[in-house]
């Protein structure tokens, strides 16, 4: 465990907490893409199946359980408890366009043709694009609440820090995983445009509003 990895995980955790807290405190999930949240739920479920099969560390297991629980809680709040506030008219991204290619790619490019490995690979591919419905929703409405922006920023920072972690691990441990790295680069690049808007607008106290 290096500092980039630890900060990345903390940032990831922070993003999830920011989102849950926002929904809970405002009693509303307006502006949040339920589809992205469903995709993240699927990502965690398919990736963390190894909770049952292999033990790595207490940290690892606890974080996995927390991510799973927080993800399911978010989905529950959006689709059950605060369903009335869910902005589904603006959440129109077709998720099959992400899920189907992720399945196909996982079957074609993987480290080992075994169920758990393919599910892990699928989760890596899907995670890299799972935020697209949310970004699409922001672009459709042309704006995002500051708190939603903070959530997206923390989520983007998480993958950015993981990139630094992989560079460090390659250099220090001779360890690298090309599937994770390529997908991680794609994922981070998707956030770049948002990072720019976040830094130039949200951090200066303005609302994130896209130019008309």
């Amino acid at each position: 465990m290096n500092i980039f990895r630890l900060l990345g995980d903390i940032s990831h955790l922070l993003a999830i907490i920011i989102l849950l807290r926002k929904i809970w405190m405002s009693r509303s999930c307006a502006g949040i893409s339920g589809k992205s949240q469903l995709l993240f739920g699927l990502v965690y479920t398919t990736r963390y199946l190894d909770l049952i099969t292999s033990y790595i560390s207490l940290y690892n297991s606890v974080m996995k359980v927390v991510f799973l629980a927080a993800s399911y809680a978010t989905i529950y709040l959006m689709y059950v408890k605060f369903k009335a506030t869910y902005d589904h008219n603006h959440d129109t991204f077709r998720i099959e366009f992400l899920v189907v290619p992720a399945v196909a790619l996982a079957l074609l490019i993987n480290h080992d043709f075994q169920v758990v490995e393919i599910l892990w690979t699928f989760s890596i591919y899907l995670e890299s694009v799972a935020i697209l419905p949310q970004l699409f929703m922001v672009s459709k409405t042309g704006e995002a609440e500051s708190i939603t922006s903070h959530y997206l920023f923390a989520l983007g920072v998480y993958r950015g820090l993981y990139l630094l972690n992989w560079i460090y691990r390659f250099w220090a441990e001779d360890h690298y995983d090309l599937i994770a790295i390529v997908a991680g680069v794609v994922q981070t690049v998707l956030y770049c445009d948002f990072f720019y808007l976040y830094i130039t607008k949200v951090l200066r106290g303005k609302k994130l509003q896209l130019p008309a």
Binding site: D50, S54, I56, F67, Q114, E117, D177, A180
Partner: peptide, 10 residues
């Protein structure tokens, strides 16, 4: 063939 890599990342 290389052994499966242990997935120690989240």
């Amino acid at each position: 063939e290389a052994p499966p890599v242990q997935k120690d990342e989240l």
